[in-house]
Simulated assay, not measured.
Amino acid sequence: MAETETEYRVGMGERRFGRVNWLGLQTLAMREIKRFSVVWTQTLLAPLMTAALFLMIFNIAIGPKRGDVMGVPFLTFLAPGIMMMTVIQNAFANTSSSIVISKVQGNIVDTLMPPLSGLEMLLGYLAGAIARGVVVALAIGLGLMLALQIVPAHPLVALFFIVMGAAFLGGLGIVAGVFADKFDQMAAITNFIVTPLAFLSGTFYSVESLPPVLQAISHANPVFYLIDGVRYGVIGTSDSSPLLGATVCIGATVAISLLAWSMLRRGYRLKA
């Protein structure tokens, strides 16, 4: 018995560098990435088609009549917002669905039993969300370049906000997935929290056109800064300072990640 325990400890030591279980972290991250990559028609192609339909419908319905917005054609103004909205929705879905499905099917124990700390679980889940968000953004960005000849004005700024958006909504997805025990609870969180945050954040309009009260409410929404930051990175114009947006996005991402880490570390609503 003592020899077996010693062998186990030695084996675990070989898989760690310092206090981090790199093998476990890598395995969880790869599992989360493979979850969406094996069904790419649903997780990657479908969002691309949805974004294209949004642009086409808005262009047909009000594009020619709308005129320029913030000095650029309406469709050019709309494109970055659609891209970011799609990114955050997919990042949220990646982490939340992974946890909820595991809880409903009863195999969440497969994630809890390995020697993974709360931080390692958090990073593993976020890796999948960020990977899915970035791939979706690259696909939509390529489509915008080919169809609308939109070349990013500040590509690194756009990439930063895309990663921040995927991380923030991925963390929110972890919190939602831990809290929800059933699919209908998850649907309620999506419909009443995530969708309003995405739609009421300047995706389809400039917040400068809103009344002062609604402007103040919009500026309290972290998703507004994500969309505004990506818009600055893609077309070079925005409603607010990109530096302020980056500060808000980093703060919001850290805050939601700390909450998710606390839940995962304690096994809140995960351990029977």
Results as ranks from 00 to 15, higher is better:
Y125M: 07
M83R: 13
P115W: 12
I256G: 00
A51L: 05
V39W: 04
V207M: 09
G229D: 08
L123S: 06
V10C: 01
G267M: 06
R265N: 03
M56I: 10
D239N: 13
L45T: 05
V230D: 08
L23E: 03
L75Y: 12
F204G: 03
I256L: 00
G173W: 01
T43R: 02
P196H: 02
D181K: 08
F179T: 02
Y8F: 14
I189F: 11
S201K: 07
F179C: 01
V69N: 10
S218T: 15
A51T: 08
F192I: 07
I235R: 03
L210V: 05
K182L: 05
S238F: 11
G124Y: 10
V223R: 07
P152R: 06
C249G: 02
V104R: 14
Y125K: 07
M113H: 01
G171R: 04
A153M: 11
G251T: 00
S238V: 05
N94L: 12
D181M: 03
L156R: 01
A61G: 15
G71Y: 15
S241N: 10
G251S: 00
R66A: 15
T247M: 07
L48K: 10
T237L: 01
Q26S: 11
R266S: 13
E14G: 15
W261C: 00
T43G: 01
T41P: 07
D184Q: 12
S97M: 10
L210Y: 04
G81I: 03
T6Y: 06
S201P: 08
V100S: 05
G245F: 04
I189W: 06
L44S: 09
V230M: 05
S262H: 06
L270T: 04
L48F: 14
F204V: 05
G143A: 11
I82G: 07
L244A: 01
A252R: 02
M113A: 09
G173F: 02
R231I: 10
L146N: 11
N94V: 15
Y125W: 13
M145T: 04
S241M: 06
A79Q: 13
T4W: 10
V100N: 07
A158S: 12
G202P: 04
I33A: 09
I62C: 02
T4Y: 13
A139D: 10
Y225D: 11
Q185L: 06
M83H: 13
W22E: 00
G229R: 03
G11P: 03
S257D: 05
